[in-house]
Computed example of a mutant assay.
Amino acid sequence: MATKSVNAKSQTIAARVPHEVANAIDELKEEGETTGQFVVSALQGEIKRRQRKKAKEAPEG
């Protein structure tokens, strides 16, 4: 078991979320999906969305 929040493959990130968000996660997770998998998927989607937005805003040249 890892004793640190960082290992060779991943890093632990802790965040407090409103009760409504936590409840929505529990309601919307697919069968067999962990909260960690749900959060990682959501974060990856948001990262891609912001990267596309940033690329659109970048001046061409």
Rank of each mutant, 00 (worst) to 15 (best):
M1R: 07
A2D: 05
A2S: 15
T3W: 13
T3Q: 08
K4P: 05
S5N: 13
S5I: 11
V6N: 06
V6D: 08
N7T: 06
N7Y: 05
A8C: 11
K9C: 07
K9H: 12
S10R: 10
S10M: 05
S10Q: 07
Q11A: 06
Q11M: 06
Q11W: 05
Q11R: 09
Q11I: 13
T12M: 09
T12K: 13
T12Q: 10
I13P: 00
I13E: 04
I13F: 05
A14W: 02
A14K: 01
A14D: 12
A14T: 12
A14L: 07
A15R: 01
P18E: 05
P18K: 13
P18M: 10
H19L: 15
H19Q: 13
H19Y: 13
E20V: 13
E20L: 13
E20G: 02
E20S: 04
E20C: 07
E20A: 10
V21N: 01
V21A: 05
V21I: 12
V21L: 07
V21T: 00
A22L: 12
A22V: 12
A22H: 09
A22Y: 11
N23W: 14
N23T: 14
N23S: 12
A24Y: 14
A24Q: 09
A24K: 07
A24V: 08
A24R: 08
D26M: 12
D26Q: 15
E27P: 01
L28N: 11
L28C: 06
K29A: 02
K29Y: 12
E30V: 10
E31N: 13
E31F: 13
E31G: 06
E31S: 15
G32I: 02
E33K: 04
T34Q: 04
T34K: 03
T34Y: 05
T34V: 03
T34C: 03
T35I: 14
T35F: 15
T35H: 09
Q37F: 09
Q37K: 06
F38G: 00
V39G: 00
V39K: 00
V39W: 01
V39A: 01
V39M: 11
V40H: 11
V40T: 07
V40P: 02
S41P: 04
L43W: 10
L43C: 12
Q44A: 15
Q44W: 00
Q44Y: 05
G45I: 03
E46P: 01
E46K: 11
E46M: 12
I47C: 07
K48F: 10
K48L: 06
K48N: 14
R49G: 14
R50S: 09
R50I: 09
R50V: 03
Q51M: 09
R52K: 15
K53Y: 12
K53Q: 14
K54L: 12
K54N: 14
K54I: 03
K54C: 08
K54H: 14
A55I: 04
A55Q: 04
K56T: 06
K56L: 04
K56I: 01
A58L: 04
P59C: 02
P59K: 11
P59R: 10
P59N: 05
E60A: 13
G61C: 02
